[in-house]
Amino acid sequence: MNNPLALVGRATLSFLGLAGRLTLFAGMSLQHVVRPPFYFGLIGRQMLSIGYFSLPVVGMTALFTGMVLALQIYIGSSRFNAESAVATIVVIGITRELGPVLSGLMVAGRVSAAMAAELGTMRVTEQIDALTTLSTNPFKYLMAPRLIAATLTMPILVFIADIIGVMGGYLVGTAKLGFNYGSYLKSTVDYLEPMDVISGLVKAAVFGFLLALMGCYHGYHSKGGAQGVGAATTNAVVSASVLILAANYLITELFFTS
């Protein structure tokens, strides 16, 4: 019963089973994402919920991250007299990594949880079964609009976060660290390459897809009433966060090591 090999085997089988179910779920969802009809009204509503209503939390996160980044880089770079690199490192750090990753994690906390709770409640109250009996495919009606909306909205959110984050660094750099307004902006723009921003936006789209997928997957498979919905919500946020961090590494490899 306590055979360590059996425990490892069970855990492996369970993981493989989960990976298989998740892949099938993602495949089914993607099939409905690309095939018409499209529910534009539902997509719009989801974009509003995911994008517009996430703006305050994403904006605040980006602002403070930019401010802290400027301070920390100034402290570090002053050790070898490279303070002039603050603006460049802030903008690259924000656009390549911190903008997409922190926005992804914040939106995962807000949106994946909300999706899992909503779909989980629909599951345990038989609303998803009711959809099916009304000749409506739940993947088409529930999953596809959420996945499309999250994938399209996250790059916009991250672009705004990039601007706010850089602005945070600019505020600290000029007001506290004594940088000249013009030269800070010049350093920000001069060394920024299009690929820095583009790679961040690509990451954002992937993160958007992943966080919506996790919210939908855990909500759709929720069972057992309030406790099940609670567990689905937690699992959605945790798995979305881990997947975002793992995907971030893979995309970074893809963009910057080839």
Binding site: T121, E126, Q127, T132, T133, L134, S135
Partner: peptide, 19 residues
């Protein structure tokens, strides 16, 4: 399946109305 389900109506135990 959708065509087949169009023949059916169902009243669920908990009503299952869309909130």
């Amino acid at each position: 399946k959708e065509e087949y389900l169009a023949k059916f109506g169902m009243l669920f135990q908990g009503s299952a109305l869309f909130d």
